Computed example of a mutant assay.
Amino acid sequence: MLALAAGHAAAEPYRLERVTAVHVNDSVFQGLDRWRTGSAMLSVALARQGDAEAMPEFGDLLELRLSAEFVTPEFFLADGAGDRRYAGILSVGAHTHFRTRGLEATLGADLHVIGPQNRLHEVQDIIHVVSGGASAPPEDQMVPDSVWPTLAGELARPVALDEGQLVLQPFLGLQAGHETLARVGGDLYLGQAVDAGTFGREPVTGLPFRLSGAGGPGVWGSLGVDIAAVGSSALLGHGTGDEPRDTRTRVRAGLGYDVGRLTALAGVAWLGPEFEAQRSGQWTAAFALGLSF
């Protein structure tokens, strides 16, 4: 079946559908740099079908991602005693988003380059020289170098509750690689959202952002929650007390606005504790700006 879908998709060339920049930062609320402190992602959507209302098959909608993330101890210079170690994470990947048998599906792979080898700590040092933040810890106090191919997939079933203006979308997600986990959760979309195109998911917060189509001009929103069962993590287990917890929880809300070819999105998320010694969860903010072509 997938071979037939891929063969069908190969009949048409890709065209640029949408480019989206996404930024996540925890310092918006309390001025703190800690744990899942910040990330930046560039998402490029390529489409074989020009109609935003079309039902994409496997391979019709391809998302290319380039991202950089900073994960730090609570007090930034911690040496791994009772806290997690610093890690810079650079990743590149490709995912296809499609619909089959009434399900929204995503399948893809990323390559994660972790540790001092990616030099992201030097980039953060430059940022903190300007903003007044602390310098990164010595390299021997960071998560060691590693490279991880990571596979990820998600299945969701939209349930329209109010003629497409209120849509509940429970989902199941699986990931194997630099962090291996299984997620179950759901998102509630309000306004001109699900029926107007396809949505991706920001990796840290899980916040949905528009990949194709447009429901505007108009406002739409999302509320979501999920819980993950964690198998392993290359980012944890390098200090004292930073063994990964068996489960993680995320709660989020987002508000988007579509006008013309432009989509703006702002969101907030609560991320539950990820390791044994983490004394609390954390609030973080997410912002996205997308342009369709």
Rank of each mutant, 00 (worst) to 15 (best):
A214Y: 06
W220L: 11
V259N: 07
V251Y: 01
W283Q: 13
A81I: 10
L236Y: 14
R279I: 05
E63N: 08
A152P: 02
F76M: 15
H8A: 07
L166Y: 08
S146P: 13
P144L: 11
A288C: 06
G215C: 00
L188G: 11
V194C: 06
R201W: 03
G218Y: 10
P56W: 01
H128E: 03
L235H: 03
L107Q: 09
F75W: 15
D258Q: 11
F171I: 10
A109K: 03
H95W: 07
G237D: 06
A11G: 12
V147L: 14
T205I: 01
D195N: 14
G185C: 06
V230H: 06
G80P: 04
D162T: 07
D110W: 05
V204N: 11
L120P: 01
E139K: 05
L291H: 14
G7T: 00
E179V: 13
R183E: 13
Q192G: 08
R183S: 15
G132I: 04
R183N: 15
S232M: 13
V28I: 04
A136C: 00
L2A: 03
G206Y: 12
R101M: 14
G50M: 09
S131K: 02
G186L: 01
S232Q: 15
G197L: 13
S91V: 02
Q49I: 05
T72Q: 08
F58M: 03
R245Q: 09
T150Q: 08
F70I: 11
H23K: 09
L61W: 06
W220F: 14
G115K: 11
A228E: 08
G50C: 09
P170K: 13
L265H: 03
L161N: 07
L62D: 01
W283K: 09
G216V: 02
D33R: 00
L289P: 09
T37P: 05
M1Y: 00
T249E: 07
R119F: 06
Q282E: 15
T96N: 13
